[in-house]
Design a protein around this nucleic acid. Sequence first.
DNA 1: CTTATTACGCAACACCGTTGCTATACGCTG
DNA 2: CAGCGTATAGCAACGGTGTTGCGTAATAAG
Lengths: 387, 387
Amino acid sequence: MVKPADLDFLRDYNDASVVAVARRARVFDRATIASATGLTPQAVSKVVARLVAAGLVEPDGVRRQGVGKPASVYRLVPNSRYAIGAHVARRTLRMVLSDLTGQVLNTIVGPLPPDFTPERLLDELAAGVGRLAGECRAGRLVGVGIGMVGPLDHAQGVVRDAHRLRHWHDVPLREMAAERLGLPVMLDKDVAAGVVGEAWLRGPHFRDAALIMVESGIGAGLWLGGSAYRGAHTNAGEFGHMVVQTDGPPCVCGRRGCLETLHDRALARGDVGTAARVLAVGVVNLLQTLDVGHVVLAGADLLPHAAAYLEAVRTAVRTEVPRADWLAAEVTTPALGVDVIAAGAAMGMLNERYGLPTGPRPAEAAKERAEEPAEEPGDPAAARAGG
Amino acid sequence: MVKPADLDFLRDYNDASVVAVARRARVFDRATIASATGLTPQAVSKVVARLVAAGLVEPDGVRRQGVGKPASVYRLVPNSRYAIGAHVARRTLRMVLSDLTGQVLNTIVGPLPPDFTPERLLDELAAGVGRLAGECRAGRLVGVGIGMVGPLDHAQGVVRDAHRLRHWHDVPLREMAAERLGLPVMLDKDVAAGVVGEAWLRGPHFRDAALIMVESGIGAGLWLGGSAYRGAHTNAGEFGHMVVQTDGPPCVCGRRGCLETLHDRALARGDVGTAARVLAVGVVNLLQTLDVGHVVLAGADLLPHAAAYLEAVRTAVRTEVPRADWLAAEVTTPALGVDVIAAGAAMGMLNERYGLPTGPRPAEAAKERAEEPAEEPGDPAAARAGG
DNA sequence: CTTATTACGCAACACCGTTGCTATACGCTG
DNA sequence: CAGCGTATAGCAACGGTGTTGCGTAATAAG
């Protein structure tokens, strides 16, 4: 099951690096890619030839830039691949169609009935996919990403206990949806999906970031060291259940003085300023621990008061973090607005196939102890991790 | 400057995977490595041959396990490489000599004068290296790792403002020490070094972890997704300055109700139980946000009361984390005891050379925009990242 | 027209892990 | 003790990666 570092990895990695550069440039040439990736120009030619053959990239004329032979210019073909993303919230289903560059081409939003069942969600998803997929030629649809409230298990694709949804305990949603839709499906926590989307658009500078989402609860999607961080049980990001007032009011989680409780109480009584300042305390706590460079504030309950939240959090980041000159963190709202989660889920799907691999996994638990060797012969012909 | 994914990367990566498996096994054979790494047995033979040539590995007889030709058995040569680690605390300098397996061979501890200067530290380091290095043959010493209180800049090797040390502002310690000692030097925050060491010993299961260190302040070393996480400005881990009581007593950092302040006050009045419970609140906060699978409690102020702290934290982790059955986190004290930081710094040095590479970096800031291409020709012959 | 410059791309190359196959060493069987 | 089945080691050829060397093409400048 372990993926070794072989030539396939090399090829995929370099292909993905080129796509990554191409994705954020309208057009590009060989020298640009070469200096950006560290590959030799000749290697870039080979990579680009592969990508052209796959239809992901196409020639786009030449550029004269003074003396010398003009450089061949290429561009990513946006409509060569599509992905659909779905944001499953407690009462609404938002779905988007995204192209290979991450551009959102179409959005549909619909209500979900209270306490909707898995079957009902599948119906809605299928209907949405039908409407959105019609717009793109078949075979070019990479898959469907689903961003949903947790707790859920990303690795297994199972919803453990969706917060405040009765019918969602240990539901193998990824498998169910894949079968129903006939497409690859990725299941992720809403906040994780969102931060993937934001990172996909923001580029390599966006290495360490948190997406704070205030929407029936407060969660944080973490993007650490250039990839999504989900934690040991893929349940990282329960940011709202950070205690900031040890003797505070009780929270549904059983503890006292959770950020979420304090925040929601303030917001419920219309005190946006206090709510924002409470959130800011949590954000500064997060910065102290994680030293992220970017904080993105999102969520249906926050965005209507975005200005107030931005100001409160920015002020706190500037004044309450020691050596804030050095430890500067950029605080913004999502580039994708209300579509963050859905679009992020779509980009997560694209990222799976066309993004940079996380790297071959180190030797896994396959052998706890090397000392006492294989009892059973096992199959020495290790399955190749197919692309 | 960007490191592309080339054949060198492949080789180094697979060499490191084999070393990683070998490091934790007294002896190993080809089949074991093959199944643990996913490489074919033949590839393992080539890798092992390289490692034998480098002196890192040596044959260790054969093993008969019934029918068939006996398997060739190898073992890592512990004394083929050494590293020295130093833990620079506010009043003491602790240095260790570690071999390639991570075994601590020797420890020396000495006092540091109040408000010691960089020059004084260099003297002490040089003396310590002299005493420790004498025990190992020259040329086999990989380098010196330094774990120190922050804030400091790991990437640049510069101490920004060592906490409560007057002479330590923007001191380029890595460069100074490298010149003085004539050896490669790595500078890291104490907690980061510590968690690297713990991870180096614990193996691949130890993928997401936090080392909480209580020692004139409270910090957290983070090991996320199988590698050290240091943050956007390499200053992650200021765990003690998480506010857990918004109206609490003021902290030196300027905020109110920091974990560290509440904890230290309790400890100062001898109330270990309360101190431990305060720390536990922070640990659960951390678990909610990061979902790490392992928590290591360390530090000179904690270890004397280890039992009390372990119990308080374990209880909190078991009872205050929702779905604690699923989100189990193991709480321990460091396998290396009081040597964690120093030994971890040494292993960080070993990890640099013989550990798994983090993976080739994605296209860096080299080109912000690919659209408008190179102004200057630049040197296309990218320097190869030498091993 | 000639020259310098810049970029492209074929072909040969070095080196990686993989595959096919043979040689070797053992337990077992008769 | 010879023959067989089995498990392992390792040589040799292979496919495929990025790299290097070098000839070719296209442009501006003289």
